[in-house]
Design a binder for these strands. Structure first.
Ligand SMILES: [Mn+2]
Ligand SMILES: [Mn+2]
Ligand SMILES: [Zn+2]
Ligand SMILES: [Zn+2]
Lengths: 139, 139
DNA sequence: TCATTAATTTTGACAAAGTCTAAATCTATA
DNA sequence: TATAGATTTAGACTTTGTCAAAATTAATGA
């Protein structure tokens, strides 16, 4: 990823302190929630409204600059690793989220057998399980 | 599936009108939301509280009698087709949800390469696309 | 540099989907 | 049929996110 200001200009987005800070926060904290990111941004630039965090995350997602993932039982999470069709491994117990390369190859799971006449554009895969640290915990 | 009353007794659940009605509604309306199901139940038994619908869906899900799926942008959906590791095909436009047999074989996507030391117990796959009917619509 | 305009940010209300709690009701059992 | 324990209900509450209008800021070009 290049520097956030260049990224914004390349996408015809006016450069604002809020956008820069959110974009940096996403880059530094992959799979963070909107709330997590607001927290990070506040530590950097002092203040940001909740609405602005959502505004920025939405516009960045629409432009394809970042990606939104929405596992069950969790608010949406964001990452700037886009366009590589990777998947996720989520701990049922603590929510820890790890990247996993696409199981079948390049963008393979997209070859979804033309089922039911649907025009398929994405295969979303989430592996659910227990992370090493939670496996150790009693209970 | 056998009759709902037997199912409940086999799982040591006291039989109530609400549980029977919700279980029947799930069987007759696969991939319905809690709200959809409440609606159906009311047509059958006259009334049920929102909380009871959730209570029942939760206990049935915990017992493994039904399954909960939670696609992005949608409230949770329920079905009584459990234990066969099937996946889902969801229309981005209208939310239509169809079953898809597991792409890789029996319970294959579970063989997830022992990544990151996680103990994986489920591979959830959602194919996103546009259903035939929505493909026809203008716009 | 400065004024103008369009876009962004903020504030505060609102919505959807669920959960929590205590009181009322019902089921199972004997 | 009485009892104990479980379920159901009502209503408040929480979380995550959106909407809309007013205030502020960024980009542009004179
Ligand atoms: Mn990722
Ligand atoms: Mn299904
Ligand atoms: Zn964990
Ligand atoms: Zn559709």
């Amino acid at each position: 990823m290049q520097d956030p200001e260049t990224t914004l200009r390349q996408h015809d987005l006016p450069v604002t302190a809020q956008r820069l800070a959110v974009l940096r926060a996403v880059a530094h904290h992959p799979h963070a929630t909107a709330d997590d990111l607001a927290e990070q941004v506040r530590q950097k630039i002092g203040a940001i409204s909740r609405q602005s965090v959502y505004n920025v995350l939405n516009v960045l997602t629409d432009k394809g600059i970042i990606r939104r993932i929405q596992p069950a039982h969790s608010p949406a999470r964001y990452e700037d690793r886009v366009g590589d069709n990777h998947h996720h491994l989520v701990c049922r117990s603590c929510g820890l989220t790890e990247d996993v390369c696409c199981a079948v190859g390049a963008a393979p799971c997209l070859t979804a057998h033309a089922h039911h006449g649907f025009k398929i554009d994405e295969a979303e895969v989430i592996y659910w399980g227990t992370c090493p640290s939670c496996q150790k915990k009693p209970r």
